[in-house]
Design a protein around this nucleic acid. Structure first.
Lengths: 107, 107
DNA sequence: GACTTATATAACCTAGAACTGACATAGTCG
DNA sequence: CGACTATGTCAGTTCTAGGTTATATAAGTC
């Protein structure tokens, strides 16, 4: 599954957000997501699988717990894709800065 | 349709890429996409509609032609969402820079 | 060893996304 | 005007992502 498709799902985006704070167990993730989205534990587990298989997360076992961490690689891909478009808003920022500088000089 | 969902489709991503170069007619977009993906003109038209309705593109009429331009607003949303994760790779870049600086000093 | 907890998978169902082909509308040109 | 071009929409079909419930596995606990 492609990186953009993975991010297409709000539950998965939320999980990635949660993981951005640091390592979490499957259970912790499931608890939060269940509370927020009202879906079954199985549904969450399946999203976790997608995240694993698409490289967004890696897992480490500790007893019966599974500890998930983000792998930023695919996020970076998205960032790279976005790169050429960034000029659209940084341009405006530049323009804004120029304008501000001009205003300041006039004072 | 949510911005991430819109970007989930490869055809739509391609159209946005094409538009990043500048204004294009519906016909020009359709020709390219049909060649690259082998889908019908109707399918492309429907993707264009999604892009319009989700705010990724705006249209201007000129005779029978429709000229499409990117609106970067939703792309920016994605960029904003990505922001907190950027530290994952810029961190590494910083580390690399530090390392490079150290190496240089040693020379 | 039986019971419980943590996690993952399997089988099935459903809604909706994306496609096709047919049709609709409105400019353009002889 | 009639034919052609550019573009968009509609109706129907197909496929798949994401959900549920039930089941499986393996590690702790009494």
């Amino acid at each position: 599954m492609n990186a953009f498709d993975v991010l297409g799902d709000p539950v998965r985006r939320r999980i990635i957000e949660l993981l951005s704070e640091g390592e979490l167990t499957s259970g912790a993730i499931t608890a939060t997501v269940r509370a927020e989205f009202g879906i079954s534990h199985s549904a969450v587990a399946q999203h976790l699988r997608v995240l694993r298989e698409s490289g967004f997360a890696t897992v480490r076992a500790e007893g019966t717990r599974r500890l998930y961490v983000v792998d930023s690689t695919p996020l970076r891909e998205v960032d790279v894709w976005l790169e050429p478009f960034r000029r659209f808003w940084s341009q405006r920022l530049d323009a804004l800065e120029t304008e501000l500088a001009r205003t300041r000089r006039k004072k």
